[in-house]
Structures are given as structure tokens and as C-alpha cells.
Amino acid sequence: MPSSFRSPAEIAEGLEGIGYLADDALAMAVHLALGLDRPLLLEGANGVGKTEVASALAQLLGRDLVRLQCYEGLDATQALYDWHYARQLLDVRGGSSSSADVFTRDYLLPRPLLTALEAGDRAVLLIDEIDRADDEFEAFLLELLSDFAVTIPEIGRVAAPSPPLVVLTSNRTRDLHTALRRRCLYHWVAHPGAEREYRILRARAPHVAPELARQVADSVARIRAVVLGSPPGVGETIDWASALAMVGSATLSPQDAAATLSALIKDVDDQQRVAERMADLVPSAP
């Protein structure tokens, strides 16, 4: 199914329609991923909305989101397929099947990767936090990502009828292999600037007054410029704005900011660092 979007601008517009604000680079990356049938590798700090990209795309394209959360020790039986051993064993013992018939599609349990392959272009496959999986798993993904096919020894090669849209995300806790990078389109997701964050706030937290949202976005941009252990993500900005709206702030004051800081900064050292500079980061209302 060729994408119904003819230009990056249309994609950006479509994503905005469902509440995800994409910048030029991301819109282009998505446009190319769809056009070239290439996986899209997104890297960036925690909380910049990498995972959100995939779910927004699934919604935009009207496809199912198939998500594979990577973790250490993830292997093919959890990611690709497994056999229904209990049923196989029972059927062999019951004498209804011989050992050859229990390795058929009926006894196969599809895991996310196989599900996405079989769905083809009706799916968006999100391989989340690939850096958490180990090198072996990364190597295992190579065939899948370049050919959109896998080989199951007992059955044969399973190829996608048409390539699904694949989105990989990484937090850079490990260096990904160049072989994987080469197969993908690459986009670095940065923290949004104050203007874009303001628009995100307006879209995602409409109950927050525009003036407050503007001040929150500006302050968060300043807070991110301070060296913190973990700079706040977009989700935390939204939480913070909602928290401020909930305690009834019409405008952002240093007092309210300090009182609700725990919604934005989730580390005690960072909180201290921000609290010390509060007067510069959150200017008091004139």
C-alpha cells in the first residue's frame, strides 16, 4: 500500500491533526521510511517522545501498533515465535499426531515480530529501546530488517506480504552496531524548543491556560539548559503544567514552581540544583 502522503509537509500536518507535533526533519524521516520501506531508527534522550512517534504514526496511518519492548536477555522465543509445547506434547502422546505434524503453523505462537511480519503494511512495528537488548539479538534482527522475512527451520521462510513500517528507538546506553545503523534511516530526536513545546502543551494539555503554558514552556527550556542528571522530558512538562493548573496558578510564580517541582524533576539532586537557581529559571511575574 503506497502511502497516501505525498510530501513531508502532509505528514507533519496529519500528525499535528492527531496531536503529535513533528519538526521538518522527523516529517522527512517518516516520509522516506514509508516511501523507501526502510526501518526508522530514532535516537534521543529519555522522554523526548520517541515511542510516541510510533503510536502517532499507527494512528495516522490507521494501522495496528505492534510493540516489542526490548530488555536484556530477550531472545527469539520471546520476540519472534515460540511453539505451543504443551499442546504439541499432548497431541503426540494422545497419538492423534505424529512428530512431523506438530511443527506446523497451528502450533506456532507468534510473538510481536512475527505478528508484524504477517500483518505486513497493516502494522507499525515498534522495536522499543533496542539498546537494552544484547548484541546477539541485534544481529538476529538484521535479516528481519533488511528482507522483512525470517526463517523458521521447521516451516521455512516467512516473508511479509508487504513491508511493515518499522520504528526502532534507542537511548544510547550501548553503541549499536554499524550494520544495524546502515539498514535504517536515522533521526535524532532532540528536546523540543520553547515554541514547539508550547504548541505541544496546547495540543496535549488543553485545560492549561495559554499564558501559563507559555511560561511553563519557557521555564522548562531554561531548566534543560542547566546541567542536570536527567533533564525533564516532554511528558514531565505536560505533568508539570497540569499540576500547576490543578493548584490554581494562573501564571507561573517561583513559589508555585517550587511547590510543584516534583512533577517535573524526578531526582533529588536535580531538584536541589533547580531550586537553588529558581529565581533565574522561573522569573517572578512583573
Binding site: 513531508p8 521538518d24 524521516a29 516520509h31 522516506l32
Partner: peptide
């Protein structure tokens, strides 16, 4: 070739997305 009315910024972003694999 998939982009109509290619502009310089399209070339820039497309080039970066396709050719560069690391920040």
C-alpha cells in the same frame, strides 16, 4: 524522486536522514 518540487531543505533533511547513521 519521490518529492515533488524539490527544495534545498528537502535535500538537506533527506540527505541527513538517509546518509548519516549517527548524531
Amino acid at each position: 524522486h519521490r518529492l515533488d518540487g524539490l527544495r534545498l531543505r528537502d535535500l538537506y533533511w533527506a540527505g541527513r536522514v538517509v546518509l548519516v547513521g549517527d548524531r
